[in-house]
Design a protein around this nucleic acid. Structure first.
Lengths: 166, 166
DNA sequence: CTTGGAAAGTCAACAAGGCTGACGTAAATT
DNA sequence: AATTTACGTCAGCCTTGTTGACTTTCCAAG
């Protein structure tokens, strides 16, 4: 409101009503986004916290506990509880760091990779259906808005994960 | 994979790698999406559950407890705990239904409206910044993909909230 | 008019997954 | 040698989700 039509371009897409629609879309879409993995996880006594850990270990094999803490934004006590169960259940391997022996380098075991694949297959299937229904131009816009919505720190994390990829 | 280039159009945006990027974008963006309201809420001993209740009561004044249960997708015991504190603190008014006296029609009190405004102002500010940075075409795509990502039931809820608006 | 069942509320108990604070140990750094 | 860092862990707390059981209210069908 009281935006003032600064450019020649219409700013109707910045009305409170449009913004509220976007907010509710995020809310409902995120539910869909997590629904499929959640169903898989609950059959095996794991939760979203386990999914996140498994995802980022898969994404960056050999990552350290501190790295994971930064990316996930939780306390080490909270992460440790989750990591402990994954290690004890043989899904994650924590190897003492080679150069710095204080660090633990985290890897998925074959069993962990199995779970990761199940979860990401389910999540990608939904994402694929949505992308396909929306089309490439919409997908481009989707990613642009999401990126702009992140906290700067998170955006750096997100983008640094992108580096070194073609 | 093994999508097969069915149309003449490139399907490169449907690769596993593109999908994974979308998944991580959702994860990081949702954190940003909830960060500002969360900060406000924690100063007053409320949580996200309170935010959601306040949002949808504001959105549909006079809505019933069952409606809210459907939209929020939690158990009545869980919702009741949140609703109870909001009612006791004088943010929400639960009036006995006029036609059906078993129902409770929920309304925000002036105090509840105050909180709602604080929360939605904060959330809209971030959304507005993201929208502005991304531009109208991206916003259109953003909404299209999110809608396609919802469960059909949620999509109906989402769209029914849209009805009756210009 | 009676009664079955829906809507709502409440009590109790439990679990996941956040949090803080305190403390210990090994390894690296200064 | 002293300090800092990385990690693990114990203990306790909170929010917000869950199930199960039960009551009260009240609509609507028989």
């Amino acid at each position: 409101m009281a935006e003032g039509n600064t450019g020649g371009e219409s700013l109707l897409f910045l009305t409170d009503e449009q913004l509220r629609k976007g907010i509710e879309a995020m809310f409902f879409a995120y539910r869909g986004f997590t629904a499929d993995p959640d169903r898989i996880l609950e059959t095996m006594d794991y939760g979203r916290a386990h999914h996140r850990a498994v995802h980022f270990i898969h994404r960056s094999p050999g990552t350290t506990v501190s790295n994971l803490l930064t990316i996930l934004g939780v306390t080490k006590q909270s992460l440790n509880r989750v990591l402990r169960s994954l290690i004890d259940d043989g899904l994650v391997d924590a190897r003492v760091g080679k150069s710095d022996k204080r660090e633990r380098n985290l890897y998925l075991t074959p069993k962990g990779q199995d779970l990761e694949r199940q979860l990401s297959d389910a999540q990608r299937a939904r994402m694929r259906a949505a992308y396909r229904a929306a089309g490439p131009a919409a997908v481009q816009g989707f990613r642009t808005v999401l990126e702009a919505m992140m906290d700067p720190d998170m955006r750096r994390q997100y983008q640094s994960l992108r580096e070194g990829e073609k």
